[in-house]
Design a protein around this nucleic acid. Structure first.
Lengths: 232, 232
DNA sequence: GTATGTTTCAAACAGTTGTTTGAATTATGT
DNA sequence: ACATAATTCAAACAACTGTTTGAAACATAC
């Protein structure tokens, strides 16, 4: 038997992903969940905290899976490649799909919206709450490419983040296009499996002597992902 | 002297980028523009069409600049590289910055929001209105990498699109982080100058024999960017 | 069975939303 | 100068927003 709280979370998660946060009213949520309007404020306090709760349910599972994946590859003897590190993302993302139907897409949709939020209360919340896992990931990635300046790492990380969020958040539309143009439905896992080596190649590229990049502008003074230092 | 119409567009453009479409009310816009509330509906018909108008003002300039850039590199004798094609984006994006203060950031912010829009009335509008330039760009890019399957091109294009939109839409926040962590303010042009070769490297990567990618899944049957064929 | 705490419910709250109206104002053309 | 058209304006519109209220229903424990 599913509780009122869960029914609200399930309905909200789907509606948020489909219509966005502010375009989804509490009345839409409670109607879909078949619960009373006031129960949202009773169980979650406010719409803001409901959004965080929806977000947290995914993030909890994702970061746990990613952590164990990172630990797994860290225990090996041989040196890690960029592809090794980025590949740790595949399973945790795919697993979200098992968690709930279209889970991965919904999660990335939420992630994208959370990131685009300009008040940014979700982004701040997420960066503080999950800074450990984030820092561990950037630490591993930095180990594979120690020649990269800290600053360059920072930008490349966000370039990559953009691809992931954008592609997976909009994967529903992209899947439809792919199906009508190529008569081929591509699964989330297949998308990530293309995206990971694609991004690995980008990450492995050596920018030295590239005229577009002025090396003298780049310093080497500590690296963060905007919150906390990399554990060293 | 600036007309009422322009004052509305200027105010709306800034507010949309800062707060999003649905989070920006017409009263916020008309207050900032110092015009009467009803003038929005009088001059633009509705909020929806105002959003399109704001978007179009940027897109017009951008696509015009990109077109001439593409024509420029097409006239050369030697074969084009991926870097050549992607580099055509640098100037048109940078030029938006001259158009209006923070133009490029505002534009990409709008682009990102337009793309995330799930009703997608802006995306549909943009894809139809500017399909020519889009198709010319994908055509040039395909020439540089004829070995790539059409389907692979499609995905790589969207991977890249994600990086561009995400990074430049959020460049304000990223710039601030870069400044506090590295004591270095990076301009939009510098960001693109890093992003372009980074993405070129990803694009140039050969996926043959990559175990993550099942080649037999990939067909070769016409390539679109979701609207219209590549001019051949 | 009665008391206590938890959860549901319909109704109302005050505030904001985009849009419309009709009169007042300004500009244009002759 | 006059007539016609284009624009501005304050006011109101109905619809919707998140949140609160206080009574009803339910569950739990003694």
């Amino acid at each position: 038997m599913s509780t009122t709280k869960d029914k609200i979370l399930d309905a909200a998660e789907r509606l948020f992903a489909d219509h966005g946060f502010s375009e989804t009213s509490l009345r839409m949520i409670t109607a879909k969940a078949d619960v009373n309007l006031a129960s949202v404020n009773y169980h979650f306090g406010s719409k803001k905290t409901l959004i965080q709760a929806v977000f947290e349910r995914f993030m909890e599972k994702f970061t746990a899976d990613l952590s164990s994946e990172m630990e797994r590859i860290s225990n090996g003897e041989q040196e890690l490649t960029v592809l090794d590190v980025l590949s740790t993302l595949i399973k945790p993302i795919s697993k979200l799909e098992d968690l709930r139907p279209h889970g991965a897409g919904v999660f990335m949709n939420l992630l994208g919206r959370a990131y685009a939020e300009t008040q940014g209360h979700i982004r701040r919340f997420a960066l503080e709450r999950y800074s450990e896992v984030l820092n561990q990931f950037t630490f591993l990635l930095h180990q594979t490419s120690p020649h990269l300046h800290k600053q360059e790492m920072f930008w490349r990380l966000h370039f990559m983040l953009g691809s992931f969020i954008f592609t997976l958040a909009g994967h529903k539309a992209l899947q439809e296009i792919s199906e009508s143009d190529f008569q081929q439905k591509i699964s989330i896992e297949e998308i990530i499996s293309q995206l990971v080596p694609f991004m690995s190649a980008a990450f492995s590229y050596d920018s030295t002597n590239n005229p577009l990049i002025q090396q003298d502008n780049i310093q080497n003074i500590g690296m963060t992902l905007s919150a906390g230092d990399v554990s060293s």
